[in-house]
Amino acid sequence: MTDARVPMVTFLGKPGCHLCEQAEPVVREVTARHGAALSVLSILDDEALQRQYGELIPVVLVDGVQHSQWFVEAERLDVALAAAART
Rank of each mutant, 00 (worst) to 15 (best):
G13W: 04
P58R: 01
R76V: 11
A37S: 14
T31S: 10
W70Y: 15
T2I: 07
R51F: 06
A37G: 10
E24R: 08
L81Q: 05
V59G: 08
V72I: 02
P15N: 12
A82C: 10
R86D: 14
A23R: 00
R86K: 15
A32C: 05
G64E: 02
Q69C: 06
T87Y: 06
V60P: 05
E55A: 14
V26L: 03
K14I: 05
L56Q: 13
D46P: 06
G54A: 05
K14S: 10
G54I: 03
E29S: 12
A4G: 13
E73G: 04
V65Q: 09
S68W: 06
E55T: 12
T10A: 09
L61Y: 04
K14P: 03
A48T: 09
Y53L: 00
R33I: 03
P25G: 11
L19T: 03
S68I: 13
H67M: 12
S42N: 06
Q69F: 11
L77T: 11
E55C: 10
A48R: 01
G35V: 02
W70E: 14
A4I: 05
A4D: 15
A48K: 05
I57F: 04
A36I: 02
C17V: 13
L19D: 09
V27E: 07
R5T: 15
A36S: 13
V40D: 07
Q66F: 01
A82R: 11
A74I: 15
A83E: 13
I57N: 07
A23W: 06
A36P: 03
E24Q: 11
V59T: 02
I57K: 03
R28W: 09
Q22G: 12
E75L: 15
F11G: 00
P25D: 09
P15K: 14
V27H: 01
A4F: 11
F11C: 00
A84T: 14
L44P: 10
W70H: 15
L77K: 09
D45Q: 00
V62M: 06
V72K: 02
K14W: 01
L61H: 00
L49C: 01
R76P: 03
D63N: 00
D78I: 07
T10I: 08
V62I: 06
L77I: 11
H67W: 09
R5M: 10
V40A: 07
V62K: 04
V6D: 12
V79I: 12
V40E: 10
D3S: 14
A32Y: 05
V60T: 12
A82K: 12
A36Q: 05
S39M: 13
D78M: 01
D78C: 09
V72R: 01
S39K: 13
S68H: 14
V26D: 09
P58C: 10
D3N: 14
K14R: 15
P15Q: 12
R76E: 11
T87N: 15
L49E: 03
T2Y: 13
L12N: 00
G54V: 07
L81Y: 03
E21W: 01
P7M: 12
